[in-house]
Structures are given as structure tokens and as C-alpha cells.
């Protein structure tokens, strides 16, 4: 009961894109390298979301994010399949929260492979937690118009107001 037929809601065709079918251990294991690889795309998407607060207006950015994810994990699968599989299988069984601290040996092998094939270093600790400035080509969306009702008529001026009646018993007043 929230959207009328006139409200814009994207159609199913616009919303249907191939989604990444990866389990949580894979995402957890590849998170840092993925975040570095798709840094600009991700920041663009998050900036759009925080500026507009409207998922309808950030669909194209979101699709770019998913596309970039496909690109990164496709490259990993092509170039570092064996190293990455060992790594995420270790992460999968290293505790309830999939801690990365138990898999440093596999992690360094995977990072070396990424460095060799994709030419990308592992981001230093604190890279994603820092405040990062993003230069976006998209102009900042202006605030939405706020139509207000017509102003009330002005009250009559006191100068033109008629003199009040004199006091009925004391005419000097």
C-alpha cells in the first residue's frame, strides 16, 4: 500500500541481472583483494546511495558493482584458482566467524599469486576503515523540490485601521 501505479518502480527486466553465486567463505577470503580491485566502483555506488537515499536511482551503479565482482572473481578463477580454493577452504573451517588469522600461510600464497597475475598488492591494514575521498564524475543531485501551500494573505495594516470607538462615559480617553 506504499506505491501507486504512477510511482516509479523499476521493472523486473531492469532488476534482473546475473547475480554472484558465491558462498560466504569465498567472499570473506577474497574480500580485501576484491575491495581493492573494485574500489572506485564500490565507492561510487555507496556515494550514490548515501546521497540520494533511493535505491531506484542507483541501479546502474549497483549493476556496475556486481559486474566488477564478476570480473574480479572470474580473474581469480582463471589465474589463481588453486591457491584461492585452498585459502577459502581454510577460511571456511577456521571458526564460527571465519577468521582470517588461522590461514596466514594460504593467504600469503594467494596474495603472491594476485600480485603476480593481477599486479595488485594486498591493501594495508586500515585501508577500508579510513575516510577515503572519492572523486565522482556524477554531479551531486540537487535537493528535491518541496512544494509548499500558498502563503496566507497579509494582515491589514494598523495605519489604515479605523479609530476605535471612544469611551462612552469619558470622551477624553
Amino acid at each position: 500500500m506504499s506505491y501507486t501505479n504512477e510511482d516509479y518502480l523499476p521493472s523486473f527486466e531492469e532488476l534482473t541481472v546475473p547475480e554472484i553465486q558465491l558462498t560466504s567463505a569465498v567472499l570473506q577470503a577474497g574480500a580485501h583483494q576484491y575491495g581493492k580491485y573494485c574500489d572506485d566502483t564500490n565507492k561510487e555506488f555507496m556515494l550514490c546511495i548515501s546521497e540520494t537515499k533511493d535505491p531506484r536511482k542507483c541501479l546502474s551503479e549497483g549493476k556496475e558493482v556486481t559486474k566488477c565482482g564478476f570480473e574480479f572473481f572470474g580473474k581469480v578463477k582463471r589465474d589463481c584458482h588453486e591457491e584461492f580454493t585452498k585459502y577459502w577452504k581454510c577460511v571456511d573451517v577456521s571458526g564460527t566467524t571465519m577468521e582470517l588469522k588461522g590461514c596466514r600461510e594460504f593467504q600469503s600464497i594467494f596474495d603472491n599469486c594476485i600480485k603476480e597475475k593481477l599486479g595488485q598488492d594486498r591493501p594495508p591494514l586500515g585501508y577500508f576503515s579510513k575516510i577515503r575521498v572519492h572523486e565522482s564524475k556524477r554531479p551531486k543531485p540537487p535537493p528535491l523540490p518541496h512544494p509548499l501551500p500558498d502563503a496566507l494573505p497579509e494582515p491589514p495594516s494598523l495605519d489604515k485601521a479605523p479609530e476605535p470607538n471612544m469611551h462612552p462615559y469619558n470622551p477624553q480617553l
Binding site: 506504499s2 506505491y3 518502480l9 523499476p10 521493472s11 523486473f12 532488476l15 541481472v17 547475480e19 554472484i20 567472499l27 570473506q28 574480500a31 580485501h32 576484491y34 575491495g35 581493492k36 573494485c38 566502483t41 564500490n42 555506488f45 555507496m46 546511495i49 535505491p55 531506484r56 542507483c58 541501479l59 551503479e61 549497483g62 549493476k63 558493482v65 556486481t66 565482482g69 566467524t97 577468521e99 582470517l100 588469522k101 591494514l125 586500515g126 585501508y127 577500508f128 576503515s129
Partner: peptide
Amino acid sequence: LEMREARIAVYPLIEAERHRLYLMHCR
């Protein structure tokens, strides 16, 4: 911090998919 950063890095990927699912459900 490392674990938190892993979540931050993957967050846009999950968020994009979640927004699409949300809008699909609204539709």
C-alpha cells in the same frame, strides 16, 4: 579490524544485490 574491513569491502556487493531484491519485492 581486519575482519571488519573484510565486511566493509564486501558490503557494496551485497548491498547492490539486496537493493535489487527489495525493489523486486516492492514491484
